[in-house]
């Protein structure tokens, strides 16, 4: 039986006169990697920011773990957010803190029993992304790929049930992009997390996707596996995969 961890129903969002999301609905199942593929500016990032309440939608419903987020208090929403990891496009590392402090930061509000061995949790999260040696470095001392890995480690440290990746490979060279994509797959297999991966990087989609949704001008126009969509009869969809 399928186990839905997040669901969006008829989501609409405009900025001024621009309708970014026109009528978006999706379901995310436990343990699934769902890739949202689309051109830049098609509303992909807005979609996942609505999912965690960073952007308020104009209308529609957002359910996380069966709870409609607009009905939650700030405190209830924050509890729910701890079960959702978010890897920002720029990784959004706190640049005044070391890598260690960046990873410790999300742990600060957890009950003390969960943080008795903060050092071990931090080291374990860094080990998962292959960056144990960077523990005392500042973000400014890291390369683009390392920043993304540390961002992923910080996302993983709370052991979230859902991870939202906002353009995880943007700005990286093809080799590092492939490494990050494989890391996303490893995370899914190791922790059985459900993920939404926002991207326009087709090799990343091929490696990570169980299912792909294609967004165009604020609506989903196609859904399927990588193989199904790359063989689509629609020329615009097929052009993505060439």
């Amino acid at each position: 039986m399928k186990n839905t961890v997040a669901e969006i129903k008829h989501l609409k969002k405009s900025f001024g006169t621009k309708n970014v999301l026109k009528d978006i609905s999706l379901k995310l199942e436990k343990g699934e990697n769902l890739v949202v593929l689309g051109k830049s500016g098609s509303g992909k990032s807005v979609l996942i920011k609505c999912l965690v309440g960073l952007i308020q939608p104009d209308s529609g419903e957002v359910d996380l773990f069966g709870k409609e987020i607009s009905e939650l208090t700030n405190q209830e929403l924050n509890v729910l957010r701890k079960k959702v990891g978010f890897l920002f496009q720029s990784a959004a590392l706190y640049d005044s803190m070391t890598v260690r402090e960046n990873l410790e930061f999300p742990l600060r509000d957890l009950p003390s029993a969960d943080t008795t061995d903060t050092e071990a949790l931090v080291r374990d999260a860094l080990k998962n992304v292959g960056l144990e040696e960077a523990i005392d470095k500042m973000p400014s001392e890291l390369s683009g790929g390392m920043i993304k890995r540390v961002g992923l480690a910080r996302t993983l440290i709370l052991k979230p049930d859902i991870i939202l990746y906002d353009e995880p490979t943007t700005g990286l060279d093809p080799i590092t992009s492939k490494e990050i994509s494989k890391l996303i797959l490893e995370v899914q297999q190791k922790y059985n997390t459900a993920s939404i991966i926002i991207t326009h990087d087709v090799p990343c989609a091929r490696i990570t996707a169980n299912r792909i949704l294609i967004i165009k001008e604020g609506v989903f126009i196609a859904e399927g596996t990588f193989d199904e969509l790359s063989a689509s009869e629609d020329e615009w969809i097929r052009s993505f995969f060439i």
Partner: peptide
């Protein structure tokens, strides 16, 4: 600059204040 680089958003989605 923290707002522009999404660091404030990152704190918020971590369930912190």
């Amino acid at each position: 600059s923290m707002k522009v680089t999404e660091q404030i958003d990152a704190m918020e989605v971590s369930g912190l204040n």
